[in-house]
Nucleic acid binder design. Structure first.
Lengths: 141, 141
DNA sequence: TGCATATGATACCATTATGGTATCATTTGT
DNA sequence: ACAAATGATACCATAATGGTATCATATGCA
């Protein structure tokens, strides 16, 4: 049961790497070298982040990507939402139909609680918060 | 992202149904009727629960299943463990290898916390606790 | 101008997990 | 003996995951 899938994780790593880079743009090649992620897969992920407005891309020689938001504003929960869809733990297996087993329903309350707690723990995980651990000065406000 | 998959859910429903039944044994047919679960799939699930020691089975005419534990001792977490494997939310995508990105690791602490909270919420969900909602007297101690 | 170097778009693909089916063997009550 | 039940096991369809491959397009620079 994965809370965070591989593409979300790769996206997060890439964003952190770009955030930490001194260069104005970071190429896929640089990221592949640093993160050891399969190149075409990473490209797909970055293109997606670009479409979603988290990255700005520069084509052509010397091109690459840069963050379009401050790392403080790039939330893991948004990445999860982009790559995995909304975090929903409490969907009954009888979606459209009426659930035939009322006895089970108290479970949905528990699941809602778990979902709530999970979001609450994840909500302040940002690129910034992960990059901070390495004490890089660039983004100190 | 499903915390509880269909087989776990079906198993739980079936166990609750058996727990609530007045008869000494409950047949697959009876369960199928009540729960509207595809018969062969339910059979597979029940056979599994039998192997795992949660159900006792009786072959032949008039046969079926009965609980081998008090509903108080049948935990949802055990069902999850049986059908979905151990609840593990915090596995790094770089399993065998050394994780190349130390910056991400603070995440694993958060995931561990989420896992802990999740287990803590689920740990007292038993068949009994779900059946209780219907105020059936059979299992009042 | 032309070419190498970058991303954009898109289609395809392999593996695994999920959610089942199908079939035959075995046991047991009548 | 036979019907009614489970046991065991193999198979299968669909979707999600984790990618590849390819061609189009933009751009810096000699």
């Amino acid at each position: 049961m994965k809370l965070i899938t591989r593409d979300t994780d790769y996206a997060l790593r890439a964003l952190c790497s770009i955030a930490q880079s001194k260069a104005p743009v970071t190429s896929v090649s640089a990221l592949v070298q640093e993160l050891q992620i399969p190149r075409p897969f990473l490209r797909k992920i970055l293109q997606c982040l670009n479409k979603e407005g988290l990255l700005v891309s520069y084509k052509g020689k010397g091109g690459g990507f840069s963050l379009s938001l401050h790392p403080d504003k790039i939330y893991l929960l948004d990445l999860i939402s982009i790559f995995q869809g909304d975090l929903k733990l409490n969907e009954c297996v009888f979606k459209k139909q009426v659930c035939p087993n009322k006895a089970r329903c108290p479970l949905s309350k528990k699941l809602a609680l778990i979902e709530e707690q999970t979001v609450s723990v994840l909500k302040d995980v940002t690129v910034q918060s992960l990059v901070n651990e390495n004490q890089r000065p660039e983004y100190k406000v």
